[in-house]
Computed example of a mutant assay.
Amino acid sequence: EPGQGTGLGLSMAHGLAAQSGGRLILRSKPAQGTTAELWLPVIHQQPRTEQLKADAEALMPLPQRPPLTILAVDDDPLVLANTAAMLEDLGHIVLQAASGQEALAIAKARHRLDLVVTDQAMPGMTGTQLGAHLRCEQPNLPVLLVSGYADLPLGSGSNLPRLNKPFQQVTLAQAVEAAITPPASATVTVLHARCSEGSAL
């Protein structure tokens, strides 16, 4: 369970391999142990200057916006700090929360938030549960769900926009832009209906 130790992190390793075009292979024999192999495709490393240029070109199609006030949520302090640093480097104002409960307290205390970027697997409250709580209080608040799982657990029922771990700053910027400009309002309507039935709170 989240917060009770991470073990080998096989689901995240499998998700990383699948998203990278590779595969995870496990071989286990009684009394001999288990071997985990992570197979990844070979790429030719670009010089740093070329990579920076490619990243800049990938960001060029994004519209210029004023800085957003973003609440970043993750129970892993290193991941949280890294996500916040990337968002701040993109020019945004970032608040940090280490749990769903802390995120709810910040959201209630803040006059205005433009976006919440939250991890999925957290102790006490998952990212999808946090998103449902936030949408009950602020139906128009965009929520971006970050997950290291290739697929969300059964029964999560999330229709929140997704960003898969691991991600680069360019991918994060594109996901933020997509999250704050949803194609339709159906998501807000569905979640608000659940709030009225008392299932989210």
Rank of each mutant, 00 (worst) to 15 (best):
P47G: 13
G91K: 09
T49I: 14
Q46C: 03
T34H: 04
K53T: 14
R23L: 12
M60I: 08
P47N: 03
T34E: 06
M12A: 15
A98I: 11
Q32N: 01
E57Y: 06
N82T: 11
Q64S: 09
P77V: 06
L68H: 13
A103N: 13
P67M: 03
D89G: 11
Q51Y: 07
A98N: 13
L104K: 11
I106H: 07
E50P: 03
E50V: 10
L104A: 11
N82Q: 14
D55G: 02
H14W: 07
L24T: 03
L10V: 06
R65E: 08
L40H: 04
D74T: 03
A81N: 10
T83S: 12
W39T: 09
V73S: 06
G91H: 01
A72L: 03
M86E: 09
L80Q: 14
L40W: 09
S99Q: 10
L95S: 05
L78S: 06
L104I: 08
A31H: 09
L68F: 06
V94N: 04
Q96I: 09
L59A: 02
L68V: 07
G100Y: 11
L26I: 07
L87R: 05
L87W: 05
A17P: 07
L52W: 05
M60N: 15
E37H: 06
L104S: 15
H44Q: 14
E102D: 14
Q96S: 15
L104C: 09
N82A: 09
G100M: 12
L80C: 14
E50Y: 14
S11L: 05
G21H: 04
L52A: 09
G15E: 01
I70H: 01
M12Y: 08
L71G: 05
L59Q: 00
Q51N: 12
D89W: 01
R65S: 08
Q96P: 04
P30C: 04
R27Y: 02
L16I: 12
E37P: 00
L24C: 04
R27K: 10
Q96E: 15
M60Y: 14
L80W: 14
L24E: 02
R23N: 08
M86S: 00
G33N: 08
H92V: 14
D76P: 00
D55H: 03
L16V: 10
A97T: 05
A103C: 12
A36V: 04
D74A: 10
A105N: 13
W39C: 01
